[in-house]
Nucleic acid binder design. Sequence first.
DNA 1: ATCCAGGAACTGT
DNA 2: ACAGTTCATGGA
Length: 302
Amino acid sequence: MNWSDHESFLIIYPHKEFNFDECLLFLGRSNQEVLHQIKGRNLYKLIKVDGTLVLFKIGYIKDSINVEFLNKIPSLVTRKKVAAYIWEWFDLDTNLGEFYKAVSKDKILKKITQDYYGLRIICIQDLFEALIWAILGQQINLTFAYTLKKRFVERFGEYLTFDEDTFWLFPTFEKISSLNVKDLRILQITSRKAEYIIGLAKAMKNGELTKELLNQQQDDQQVQKLLMKHRGVGAWTTDYVMMKCLHNMASLPIADVGLHNAIKHQLGLERKPTIEEIEKLSSGWKGWQAYATFYLWRSLYD
DNA sequence: ATCCAGGAACTGT
DNA sequence: ACAGTTCATGGA
């Protein structure tokens, strides 16, 4: 992590393969997003660090990320954690140059890696949030998924009001673990998804499922096995979580409808590709499947 | 109207 | 193991 501290603000120095505006475009894809706000070229985010709410504003000036604290100036320890949070949020540890090199001759990725140069996987660091967001999005259109997330967050999440704006935190598993299916049905979350969500919240509350546990596993298959033990978590959700939360660059949600549509569009196919075709097409993406998927998703909203 | 959506569990064979 | 069905609703 490369950063400097200036008390009321921080400066973070990303690698050269970083395009803040591309990341901002992804973050702004839904106008129903409640977990961050975008105004002009600035990004606003509320997080909780060691029990205290920290609201900050992120801008980009002269090849560096500028972070300004809004609600109060946190301690040095907290400022360092905020820097680490942002570093991970934009996946700044990854050497994107290696990805570009690896797929420079790939017929699907060659063009879009140039078009979206500097786009990085936007990470969902909270395991509970990553899981619940994946479950909410199962088998429904993204617009409605965002509606459900908004209702869920605004019903059960913590918030901070600043300058007439309200900033939300994703609800905690502690809070959700004590709910009934009925509490979520009111929001038009299906009974089955409500059961999944509450079940996962309980598993996390009793310590059976933690991010640490997943990070300790020897290989990807063990992680998949642990996640899929839980009702509501199948192969797609597992890959999604590995990609967005665990920084697993080799995860490929191969059954994903968005991925299928993106490949169809990029190759100008009449129909969506089959799983077998995707396996062949992706054979050259080894170690970078997650980034390939993310760039293909990005290509859907040009 | 009609089809399908960033799936997964359940049921019957 | 595998295929068909159900969940539930909104978006285009």
